[in-house]
Amino acid sequence: MAYAKIGVEARSGLLATDRAKVMAIRIAIIVVMLALWEGASHSGLFFKDVIPSIATLAAALVRLLSGSPFYANLLVTAGEIAAAMAIGSVFGIAVGLLLGANPFLARTYEPYIYYFGPTPKIIFFSVLIMLYGVGPGSKIAMGAISCFFPIALSTLAGMREINPVLIRVGKSFSARPRHMVFKILMPAMRVPMITGIRLGLGVAIIGTLLAETKLSNKGLGYMVIQSYNRFDMPTMYALIIVVVSIAVLLNVLIERWSRSNSSDNLGSLA
C-alpha cells in the first residue's frame, strides 16, 4: 500500500539511495528554473533587459562584489541594522521579562503588543523621518520598531515555558533579581530568545532596507532604488540576490546556533 510506504519513509528517515534522489530532484528543479529563466530572457516576450540572461546576471554579480561601493553601502546598512537590533532587543527582552514576571502586567499590555505586532511598521517611516531626520537615525528607528515586537513576544512566551522548578531553586537560594535574570531566566529561555532574535533580525533587515529605498543617500536599499532609477536591471537583480542570500544565511546560522550546545544550558536539565 502506498500509504504504508509513505509512513515508513517518514518514520525511518531517508535511505542513502533516497538521499541521492533528493539531490537529483533539487538539481533538476534548479536546472529547469535556470533554463526557463534563460528561455524567458531570450524569448522577446519581455521588454529588453527586464529579464537579463544568466551570463549578464553573473557578470553583474561579479562586478557588484568586486567594486568598493557595495562594501561601503553594506557597512552602512549593517551598522544601521546592528544599532536597530541592539535597541530593539534591549527593549524587547526587558518588556518580555517584565510581562513574563508579572501576570497582571501581561494581561494588561500583552494584547497591545500581540495585536500591534503584525501591523505594517513601514507606515511609521514618514513620521520617523520628521523625528530622527533623513540620515541613519530614522532607519535605525524603523528597524528597532520592527524587531521589538517579535523579540518581546518570544521572550514572553519563553518566560511562560520555564520550568517552575528552576525559579523555585533560584528563590530558595534567595537569588537577587539580577541573578534571577542572568543566571536562571535567560539561560532557561535560550531557545525562545534566540528564536525571537532570529525573527527580529529578519524584520529589522526588511524595515531598514525598505526605509533606505524610500529616502536615503547611503546603504544597500539606496543602491537598489538607484539601480531602479537608472534602469540598471542586472545590478538590481545582483543586489537583490546578494541581500536575500545574506538574510537567508543569517537566518540559517542563528537557527543552527539555537540548536547547538543546547545540552549545556540549564533549560535542558529540567
Binding site: I205, Y228, M236, Y237, V244, A247
Partner: peptide
C-alpha cells in the same frame, strides 16, 4: 528559506515587470 527571505525588497523589480 523563502518565508524568511526579504522578498519585499524586490518591489522595484515588480514595478519593472
Amino acid at each position: 528559506a523563502l518565508a524568511a527571505a526579504p522578498i519585499v525588497l524586490a518591489y522595484p523589480l515588480f514595478l519593472v515587470l
